[in-house]
Design a protein around this nucleic acid. Structure first.
Lengths: 164, 164
DNA sequence: CTCTCTTGGTTGACACATCACCCATCCTGC
DNA sequence: GCAGGATGGGTGATGTGTCAACCAAGAGAG
């Protein structure tokens, strides 16, 4: 394919890097899994549900165009479409027509969705605190934020596919 | 359910914590998605496939009991079972009977699996380096490792369900 | 030797994510 | 006013992960 990308001697990770990487992967997987499981058990919501509902309530209007929602949450439109269909079937959100654009649709949170998120949020936040922030010093919290921002910035940067 | 867990005044996150948390979630989601996509496109492997194959090659014997593999990778046994079935169908691994335990089975990497992982690894590592480590200073790498370890340790610790 | 408990592993139903493709509706040039 | 692309959004197949339930084989206790 594009073997210009893979030099004969790849830049392998140092021991430190490899260790950091493996422990990061393990932590991230475990953490998301556990958070999702507890959220599901406590409040019958998935993390994806939670993210959508929180985002909708953060908006003053409580309604948003679908693709705009997708962009704001960094989701693919297809994922958003499938997920909103499931959420609508459960009564957490509702679709509304968009008078200005015949193709478009608004998504609005329903009273049931509102109730669900209000009930879920305190427990979820408490859980995040116990699982994550109780384990970290303020410096480590800051470092986590910085590192995450750096990586995100790197991801947004265009990939140099062949730098001389 | 268990409202002893949710005091009337939950300990909400501070602005700093909330920011760190949101950016971490976003980073982690984007990163895994992107890594998975590129690995799939380059080498026709999912991250899960990759993890299993790397783990098997790390072992001198190249074979492992199923649940042991699951424990070492922190997977649920059901997930492991489903995933191994799919990998076996693609010829990446093979099941072998266990003479010592009639119920059990060994999983062994096949030559095809070996070839797949050897071809995938350099590109994948290069990608991880570009997406993650190129963006971080050595101190930040260390911090990432430490933070991840702290959180993992917290996750392994028994959850205090009602501390007075 | 049987009765029960545990362990190793599978299965089926369902939720979720991605890819590739489709359809309808704007918008623009002419 | 209409051809053709861009945009908003849905669909279906497939792979992936979870839960709950199941089954078969070992391990002890009587």
């Amino acid at each position: 394919m594009n073997d210009i990308d893979t030099p004969a001697e790849p830049r392998w990770l140092s021991d430190t890097e490899q260790h950091a990487w493996r422990v990061f992967l393990r932590m991230q997987g475990q953490l998301i899994t556990r958070l999702g499981r507890e959220l599901q058990a406590d409040s019958d919501l998935s993390i994806a549900d939670y993210d959508v509902l929180v985002h909708l309530t953060d908006l003053a209007g409580g309604r948003r165009r679908i693709l705009e929602l997708a962009r704001e949450l960094d989701w693919e439109k297809s994922r958003m479409s499938h997920h909103l269909a499931r959420m609508a079937k459960r009564g957490l959100i509702a679709r509304e027509e968009c008078p200005a654009d015949g193709r478009g649709a608004f998504i609005a949170i329903t009273p049931a969705g509102q109730a669900a998120i209000e009930e879920a949020a305190p427990r979820h936040v408490e859980l995040v605190r116990r699982m994550v922030f109780d384990a970290l010093t303020p410096e480590q919290v800051a470092a986590l934020g910085t590192v995450s921002e750096q990586i995100l910035k790197q991801l947004d940067a265009p990939q140099p596919s062949c730098e001389g």
